[in-house]
Lab assay of single mutants.
Amino acid sequence: LRLEVKLGQGCFGEVWMGTWNGTTRVAIKTLKPGTMSPEAFLQEAQVMKKLRHEKLVQLYAVVSEEPIYIVTEYMSKGSLLDFLKGETGKYLRLPQLVDMAAQIASGMAYVERMNYVHRDLRAANILVGENLVCKVADFGLARLIEDNEYTARQGAKFPIKWTAPEAALYGRFTIKSDVWSFGILLTELTTKGRVPYPGMVNREVLDQVERGYRMPCPPECPESLHDLMCQCWRKEPEERPTFEYLQAFL
């Protein structure tokens, strides 16, 4: 395994491009020591290896001592969030954005069929390849993070704006909380990567959403798509659509 080009840095580690087995181009995620327990990670990795779908980033291998390494397929255009905010983002029109959403829903419909939960679905965790191919990455890892700023769910590192209220408040993460996050991801797509709930801080978002506030229809977004977002944001988790439905609708 060779680490060649550093692609990015996040709160919990770095991402590199490299070569595996001398020939395969891969992405390598390294986790800061202390982010998660190697034992817990190894268990999760076994499950992650079983998830194989064309719209999920394929896991190739893991190094399960500290520092933990995760070796996955390489996606040339990086994260969907950076892609939307970058040069190419300007030229993306609604049909392409909807197609990308459908690809993500397709990957998540598979996660749904496998009775698995992602827990951290957002544009930053979707990767883009050639020809606007989108794949879901980092599934299941969020559960293992041991950082206090994260586990408190009120901490600075927790993605509260993407998280369903029952998950943020009571830790009830299910495929239905993933559906909520998918609704937020749809706003990221239609606004080219704007942060959700602009002008609001995490605490406010939690309070307002509890009181029934939902983001309005983004500019140039059809009402039918906003309606779909609002279905994803129904207060009762069981009233939210399935990913199978979302995939078919898109």
Rank of each mutant, 00 (worst) to 15 (best):
H226K: 12
P222M: 09
R240G: 00
G212R: 05
P33N: 13
G13N: 02
R234D: 14
T24L: 07
W233G: 07
R214K: 11
P196S: 01
C217P: 12
E130H: 15
D82S: 09
K85F: 12
R2W: 14
V63H: 09
L59I: 03
G129P: 05
D178M: 03
A156I: 04
N202P: 06
P237D: 11
R113I: 08
R52H: 13
K55M: 10
K77Y: 12
V111T: 06
R143P: 00
I104R: 01
T190R: 00
M215T: 06
E210N: 09
M200D: 04
Q9H: 10
P196Y: 02
K176T: 14
L186Y: 06
W16N: 15
Q247P: 15
E236L: 13
P216E: 09
S79P: 04
Q208W: 15
G212L: 05
I184L: 06
L59N: 02
E66G: 10
I145R: 04
A137P: 01
E66N: 15
Q103V: 07
C232S: 11
G107P: 00
P218E: 10
L132R: 12
K235N: 12
V71Q: 01
T24R: 14
T190C: 13
A101D: 02
C221G: 05
K32L: 07
L206I: 13
C11G: 05
L84W: 07
L250F: 10
R25F: 11
P38H: 14
Q247G: 12
R234F: 10
K6D: 13
E87W: 15
A164M: 01
V136G: 02
R240C: 01
M215P: 08
F83N: 08
K85T: 12
F249A: 07
L250S: 06
E244I: 14
V5P: 15
E236H: 13
Q208P: 06
R153K: 10
A45S: 06
E236T: 12
W162S: 02
E44K: 01
P216V: 08
V5I: 12
A124E: 13
D138H: 00
G78N: 09
L225Y: 08
A109K: 13
I175P: 15
K32W: 02
Y110K: 09
P219G: 05
F249L: 10
I104V: 09
V209G: 03
M17C: 11
T187M: 11
V179T: 13
P216D: 09
R153N: 08
L51C: 06
T191W: 05
E44P: 00
L141V: 00
T35W: 10
V62E: 10
A45V: 04
Q46V: 05
L80N: 04
A27G: 04
L84A: 10
P216T: 09
E149A: 13
L81M: 12
T163V: 02
M108Q: 06
M108E: 07
R194K: 08
N202F: 04
W20V: 14
P216H: 08
I175R: 15
P196C: 04
W233D: 05
C232H: 05
K55S: 11
G212N: 08
R153A: 07
M17H: 10
I184Q: 03
N21G: 12
A105L: 08
A152T: 04
C230A: 10
V47S: 05
N125A: 01
L246A: 09
K135N: 15
P222G: 05
T19P: 11
L127T: 06
E44Y: 00
Q103F: 06
D82T: 08
L59P: 04
A45D: 02
R214F: 08
Y60E: 13
C230P: 03
V209L: 08
W162K: 00
Q231P: 05
R240M: 00
I28P: 00
M17S: 11
G86T: 10
V136N: 00
R194T: 10
D120R: 03
Q231N: 02
W233T: 08
A102F: 10
N202E: 01
E223M: 12
L7D: 13
P165F: 11
E166T: 04
E149V: 15
P198Y: 13
I160T: 04
P67N: 05
K161D: 02
R194V: 13
P196F: 01
G155P: 06
W162D: 01
A102V: 09
L92F: 12
R153C: 09
S181H: 01
I28R: 03
G78F: 05
L80I: 14
I184C: 11
L127S: 02
V111C: 05
N148P: 02
V71L: 06
A61L: 02
P218K: 04
R113S: 12
F243L: 13
Q154P: 15
V136Y: 02
W233P: 00
V133M: 13
N148E: 10
A137G: 14
A61I: 05
V63S: 05
S177I: 06
M108R: 01
G129W: 04
K157F: 14
N125D: 00
A61F: 14
R234M: 09
W233N: 10
E149F: 07
G107K: 00
G155A: 04
D82F: 11
T24E: 11
P196H: 00
Y60W: 10
R153S: 14
